[in-house]
Amino acid sequence: MKKISIIVPCYNEQESIPLFYQAVQKVYTEKIHVTWPEYQMEYWFIDDGSSDDTFRELKTLAHTDAEHVHYVSFSRNFGKEAALYAGLQHATGELIAVMDVDLQDPPELLPQMMSGILEAHYDIVGTKRVDRKGEPVIRSFFSNAFYGFINKISHTRIERSARDYRLMTRQVVDAVLDLPEYNRFSKGIFSWVGFKTKYIGYENHDRVAGETHWSFSDLVSYSLDGIINFSEKPLAMASFLGIVAFIISIFAMIFIVVRALIFGDPTMGWPSMMTIILMLGGLQLFCIGILGKYVGRQYLEEKHRPIYISKEER
């Protein structure tokens, strides 16, 4: 019997877990099992150090369906990227899907995704939102700006509005697991490994329960991780800014000297000097900050710390 492994990261999602399981099982029973009876479901729920009753819900669900439901519980919150990696490590299916537990990733797309792999012979069938209905305007603006920016500066193209929700073959997952980097940006990694990929668009869905745990600052930080992990262009931009600032400073000094010789300088050059110092100092700090981001990530990679620590799994 072949398997479809469903990887489900969970962080404080006690209300969503049973609803998610019921929704996916319904799609499996009514559509997937009818068309592909040789496939059975395998669930891997990853508890990312939740502080509510998420772990208890997972244990209850695993007791109810011991044959198909499995879980890994982290010793603390390591983040969604670590949870995805843990799920990929534990999944044993020939087909592996990544889904959010809040049902913003519609399970109804799974049969179409399976058809894309089993009948159209794609290696990855991903999903993307065709609209951002219900999302704050400012968040939508910065999201679109991020995809536009990273695709201009990176050699790895990331599909605009792509979700982590995707179905992959075992070969793709093995390739992803061969990249055990500590600083992970899965959207970029899934694109970087290549393979024949198809995207399915769908309208935005609201969460089935609870509230999002991604704040605007979290999303900004996540975007910066993606840019730094998949492009060295910010370092080149920092060098370019340094050169431009140096040239501007030379012209500014020539202007100040000529003005002083012709008109005199009753303030003895203090305002112009401070302006130049502040400009150069700000640019230097900005460039050092960019460099520090890269050095910091290299520092974490060199430590060889585990991506996650499992407290309990079944």
Rank of each mutant, 00 (worst) to 15 (best):
V244W: 07
W270A: 14
T267I: 07
L235R: 11
S221M: 02
G269E: 07
A260M: 10
L241Q: 05
I277N: 08
I256F: 06
Q284R: 00
V258Y: 15
T267W: 06
D265N: 14
W214N: 10
V258L: 15
S249E: 05
G226M: 02
M274G: 10
G281A: 08
D265A: 11
M237I: 14
P234L: 01
V244L: 13
Y222E: 14
T275D: 12
M273R: 05
G282H: 05
S215T: 15
L219G: 00
Q284C: 09
S215P: 03
V220E: 13
L261P: 00
F216H: 10
D225I: 11
M274F: 12
G242N: 10
M279F: 13
S231T: 05
S215I: 03
P266L: 06
M253H: 10
M253G: 10
F246Y: 12
W270D: 07
K233H: 15
V220W: 05
V257F: 15
W270F: 02
L278N: 04
I262M: 08
P266A: 10
D218C: 01
T275H: 12
F216S: 03
A236W: 10
P271Q: 06
F263Y: 09
L283C: 11
G242V: 03
L241C: 11
S249I: 05
A245K: 00
